[in-house]
């Protein structure tokens, strides 16, 4: 097992001892959301500004089932994953043939469209008030109303998601998506139907977003309208960029930084998103690879200093 995996495992065990259980749970949920985005952003080179479409759609549908029918947890998760994947297929189908700014704007515009559906359809979604009253039905005798039990469940699902995503990026598909990111004309010329592969990346990313959305609705017992709004799309994007979209583990670090910042700073400073903006600018200007790159650079700087010190002696 690699060192990165050991670090992730250690974090999963230690986190609930360090912070509130709900916060710890939210970090892993957001990390799943980020993993899904990064398949598009980091691997395929598609900047989707509409990931909350899949997150929110899954949260509403599964939340509705949980609320009104107290569905089995796994059934709710399964439905959420399918809703995430299907909504992503729909959005992806309309977007994959566009590129650059058009692509970004279109993902954003479609996200807005879903947002307004949720906003208007108050009988189901509760509109601005959100959809409250979502429970966490027990599973195999485990009571998920206990925060620690729910934390363990989410952390386990995160690890499973991480493993699945690792298999995906290490498969031929992972290489093909990166090839498309690097040079889509050549990828097409050597035999890949580029729009179709981009669509596949959307669907997989949407499935992960859907899973995250359902877990989120169960965590807070409510689907807030923002869950399908552009702020959520922006949050996961910023978090992933800050963590490092060029790295497989970047979204996890991004999730830690983002959720921790929003928790600790937002209480003392209402305008904390400003800080997020500053962090984003720093990343874009100096550390395109986000925290992962900053960390790697710090280490090589230290090594060099050590080596110099060695020579000086």
């Amino acid at each position: 097992m690699s060192r990165a995996w050991l670090a992730v495992l250690a974090a999963a065990v230690l986190l609930p001892m360090a912070v509130r259980h709900a916060l710890a749970t939210e970090i892993w949920i957001f990390a799943i959301f980020g993993l899904g985005l990064n398949l598009l952003l980091g691997y395929t080179g598609l900047l989707s500004f509409g990931q909350s479409t899949f997150f929110g759609a899954a949260a509403y549908v599964a939340g509705y089932l949980l609320k009104h029918y107290e569905t089995n947890v796994f059934a709710a998760l399964g439905v959420g994953i399918v809703v995430g994947a299907v909504s992503a297929a729909l959005v992806g189908y309309l977007c994959v043939r566009r590129s650059g700014l058009y692509f970004i704007m279109l993902t954003f515009a479609l996200n807005q469209m879903f947002y307004f559906i949720a906003y208007q359809w108050t009988t189901v979604t509760g509109g601005e008030d959100g959809m409250p009253g979502i429970g966490r039905p027990a599973l195999l005798g485990v009571d998920f109303r206990n925060p620690l039990a729910y934390y363990v469940f989410v952390a386990a699902l995160f690890l499973l998601s991480l493993w699945i995503m690792q298999r995906i990026v290490e498969s031929p598909l992972g290489k093909i998506l990166q090839a498309i990111r690097e040079n889509d004309v050549r990828a097409e010329a050597v035999g890949y139907d580029v729009p179709r592969f981009k669509l596949l990346a959307f669907v997989i990313g949407g499935a992960f977003s859907g899973l995250a959305g359902v877990l989120y609705s169960m965590l807070f017992g409510i689907v807030p309208l923002e869950a399908i709004g552009f702020v959520f799309s922006g949050n996961v994007l910023f978090a992933t960029l800050i963590g490092g979209s060029g790295s497989f583990y970047g979204p996890i670090i991004g999730s830690f930084v983002f959720i921790w910042l929003s928790e600790s700073v937002s209480v003392v400073w209402e305008r904390w998103p400003l800080l997020l903006g500053v962090a984003f600018v720093i990343v874009v200007l100096f550390f395109r690879g986000g925290c992962v790159e900053a960390w790697a650079r710090f280490w090589s700087w230290r090594e060099r200093r050590r080596a110099l010190a060695g020579i000086a002696q």
Partner: peptide
Amino acid sequence: RGLVWRRS
């Protein structure tokens, strides 16, 4: 075959 799952 194995597109999304088999290690490359």
